[in-house]
């Protein structure tokens, strides 16, 4: 079992309104089997013992599905592994003596709350603007009354696997939320259940996305590369197509 000594540069910021700064910590005895967040746990235990406030970071399920965790590690959203959330990154990636820069997701639509914790409620508001099928509980047809081809179902599923972590925004040079928004528009737009509201949905969700202050898509594809769930750029194309159509139709 390999252990290592690391130098961490971590963004520290008291609250929304305060100025932040990078601070440097040294941590020893990091085990290669640890997850990245477990390494931060060890750092925090050490800081508490020294009477220093621990580093705040969002995390919950620690198995890559809740979308809570997210930080930029050495310039990469969720760190250097592809299709991985921060909690799934393991320390075997690093070697003794490495320096690691840990920063919060940066976007004006994601204000920093504390240290590495950001406010991603903009995503919720975008979904609230139309990311659903308007059915009430009860009175719906039998599940098998709506046959859906396997290919369509699979494509919709792939889009629906988005965990809303915000890595797409964090990594996009324009802090654009197009991958996130398009994943939901694709998921519902591909399915027969989503057809009645398809045009209005795309108009409403995009209007909310713009209101939140995200940047524009310049089709660099960085979002797709860093997406822990591998959500594809094809979704953005589908959204653009629907959006154009909806604008022409309105």
């Amino acid at each position: 079992m390999r252990t290592m000594k690391l130098k961490l540069h971590v963004w520290r910021q008291e609250n929304r309104n305060s100025q932040g700064r990078m601070e440097t910590y040294t941590i020893e005895g990091v085990n290669e089997h640890m997850s990245f967040l477990e390494m931060l746990d060890v750092l925090n235990e050490k800081l508490i013992k020294e009477g220093k406030e621990p580093v705040a970071f969002d995390h919950d399920c620690r198995e890559g599905i809740c979308g809570s965790c997210g930080m930029v590690i050495n310039g990469r959203a969720h760190g250097p592994w592809y299709k991985t959330t921060t909690c799934q990154l393991h320390m075997r990636e690093f070697k003794d003596g490495d320096e690691i820069y840990i920063e919060p997701f940066r976007a004006s639509a994601f204000p920093v709350i504390k240290d590495l914790v950001v406010d991603r409620s903009a995503f919720d508001r975008i979904i609230q603007a139309g990311g659903y099928v308007s059915v009430n509980t009860g009175g719906v047809p039998d599940a098998n009354a709506i046959p859906i081809g396997k290919e369509t179902a699979d494509q919709a599923f792939e889009a629906a696997t988005c965990i809303g972590c915000g890595a797409c925004v964090a990594t996009c040079k324009n802090a654009s939320a197009m991958l996130f928004v398009s994943a939901k528009i694709s998921h519902l737009g591909l399915l027969p259940q989503g057809q009645p509201e398809r045009m209005q949905r795309v108009l409403d969700m995009v209007a909310q996305m713009d209101k939140e202050g995200f940047g524009n898509c310049t089709n660099t594809g960085a979002c797709e590369v860093e997406c822990p769930k591998g959500i594809s750029l094809v979704n953005i194309a589908r959204m653009n197509y629907d959006y154009f159509k909806a604008q022409l139709k309105k």
């Binding site: 976007a107 004006s108 802090a175």
Partner: peptide
């Protein structure tokens, strides 16, 4: 607009 969407950039610049 894109500049405004990220007023504060990253300290560490990396390429994916």
């Amino acid at each position: 607009q894109n500049k405004n969407a990220r007023p504060q950039g990253y300290v560490y610049q990396a390429n994916d």
